[in-house]
Nucleic acid binder design. Structure first.
Lengths: 207, 207
DNA sequence: CCGAATTCAGAATGGCCGTTCTGATATTAG
DNA sequence: CTAATATCAGAACGGCCATTCTGAATTCGG
């Protein structure tokens, strides 16, 4: 009797949480066994090996992130700056509660160098993020919600770098308040002076 | 005959380059032997072990970075925004030519989690960066070179996160032009509209 | 209820790597 | 020049871990 799709998905989620928290090298197969509930035999016959479990976990993360970014940023109706803020707040909450940065970013230093497949997944992930932010920032520019110093491309660069920087900050122990303050500072920096949508929520969370 | 200080320093520099490029776990003692020219015996009697060589390399990196940031940003006479740009350009050139991100940031995901000493070094490193940027941004605010949307603290958050984000970007294969463009976008975003010092150099390098 | 196939848990395997050991070589002091 | 000390290169050790193997337990078709 083959395993059901639901069982596999649950295992992948557990593996994602585990690898996300402890990285690839630092996580042993026994750890994966304990976390997923699959035993060695099942793990090897279902996935192939440690690397394949990891790739499944990475893909799962990628999928979720893609949905979050696309759902938030591609919506033509929503105010783009607020959409950006929401997406970042989601990611910040996630990183703060897990106490670890972006799964895909953390992976970079560790195994991307030796695994071309991982490298390629990261590249497509970044492309998608770029695209998603690009849509939001085009709309922001059209609506006059972007500092006239900046092109939409500038904005994309800033936010893509911000999300990676926040991932690193989380990895070094930055807490939710720190990260939210950095987000608000960046949003203020790209907004036209005195823009109401930028200042509205600001007082809630900044130091 | 004990080893001379100069020989040790050369070895530490080589070790720094090696660990910077390939990380801690991925670098074997034999690699360190080959890179430093010290043989196992010398390495162990001079440093103690792999971890100690690594810590020496990390300290060396930390020292250099501290000097670069302090020299650039603490200078009361220099225009602060230009000083910030210079410091970033130096780091960007370094990362681009090495094809790897910030040594200390890369280390975070890999061993900070398991080594409290490394964690503490990273914390003091970040503190010092914060201080250095703080000085420059206080002066920028006084001189009216900071967008009035932003406090000096906001600026510090933005630049500290930028440097970590650029480190991640470099790790993922961003090239010099990409990183310079992100730097210029950020400098434009924190500058008052139409500020000449922000726009002056801009045309040189942006896409 | 039975027998064949599957799944299990844990033991064996093989390789890698940090560290230590060893016997040879070079260096220095007297 | 000689003997003692320091340094060398590489072999041996020990531990860790991904993977495979094995014999027991369980499931499932008839």
């Amino acid at each position: 009797m083959a395993r059901t799709q639901a069982e596999i998905e649950t295992a992948v989620l557990a593996a994602r949480d585990l690898f996300w928290r402890t990285g690839f090298d630092e996580t042993s197969i026994d750890d994966v066994v304990a976390a997923t509930g699959f035993n060695r035999y099942a793990l090897y016959s279902e996935f192939g090996g440690k690397r394949e479990v990891f790739l499944a976990a990475l893909d799962r993360y990628h999928l979720e992130r893609k949905q979050i970014f696309m759902a938030g940023l591609a919506d033509e109706a929503a105010p783009p700056i607020d959409a950006i803020r929401d997406v970042f707040e989601f990611c910040i909450d996630e990183m703060a509660s897990r106490g670890t940065g972006c799964f895909m970013c953390n992976v970079a230093g560790e195994i991307a160098a030796r695994d071309p497949v991982v490298r390629e997944r990261i590249a497509t992930y970044l492309e998608q993020i770029n695209l998603a932010f690009g849509m939001a920032l085009e709309r922001a520019a059209e609506r006059g919600e972007l500092n006239t110093n900046l092109s939409p491309t500038d904005g994309v660069r800033i936010f893509v770098t911000l999300i990676m920087g926040l991932g690193m900050a989380a990895q070094h122990g930055a807490d939710r308040q720190d990260m939210l303050a950095t987000l608000e500072a960046t949003l203020a920096s790209i907004s036209p002076l005195g823009d109401p949508s930028a200042r509205a929520r600001r007082k809630k969370s900044v130091n």
